[in-house]
């Protein structure tokens, strides 16, 4: 049972809250407090837009404990608009083929169920394809 761990991460899990480096403006997700770009302290919170595109993806058939119910599932690296990569499951694909470069947006979904008697459910971000007609022209 790991309630404190998941509670600590609630801003990241539900809001994609990362950090911005006050020295070099690098956007950081997940938050890491020391900027990997310039090596200085970076603790200023930053809200990511939740939009990005698929950098790579695969399907997991042999799921780890806690994920058996949702297997098979697609897990991806998402390149966020602000720069960082994030690891996340893809959801709501409705059978459509996802490709490298597919535009996606963040949604909140159930991530896993801890298989003990208290049945802790962990919620957090996943990403879903943005329907093409809803993308505003840029």
């Amino acid at each position: 049972m790991e309630i404190p761990r998941h509670w600590r991460l609630r801003k990241q899990r539900y809001g994609l809250v990362g950090e911005v480096c006050p020295h070099c403006d690098a956007k950081l997700f997940p938050p890491r407090d020391v900027c990997p770009e310039c090596g200085q302290e970076a603790k200023t919170l930053y809200n990511f837009s939740g939009r990005g595109e698929v950098y790579s993806y695969t399907t997991v058939y042999e799921a780890p404990a806690g994920f058996e119910e949702v297997a098979p599932y697609t897990v991806a690296l998402i390149k966020l608009q602000e720069g960082p990569l994030v690891t996340a499951q893809l959801t709501d694909t409705n059978g459509e083929q996802v490709e490298i470069g597919t535009p996606v947006e963040m949604v909140t979904r159930r991530l896993r169920s801890d298989g003990d008697e208290r049945g802790l459910l962990v919620y957090g971000y996943k990403f879903r394809p943005i329907l093409q007609q809803l993308i505003s022209p840029t």
Binding site: E62, A63, P64, V75, T87, A88, Q89
Partner: peptide, 11 residues
């Protein structure tokens, strides 16, 4: 990374 990879089902 348990907090940001494994929690997404990444193996």
């Amino acid at each position: 990374d348990s907090d940001f990879e494994a929690v997404q089902g990444l193996t």
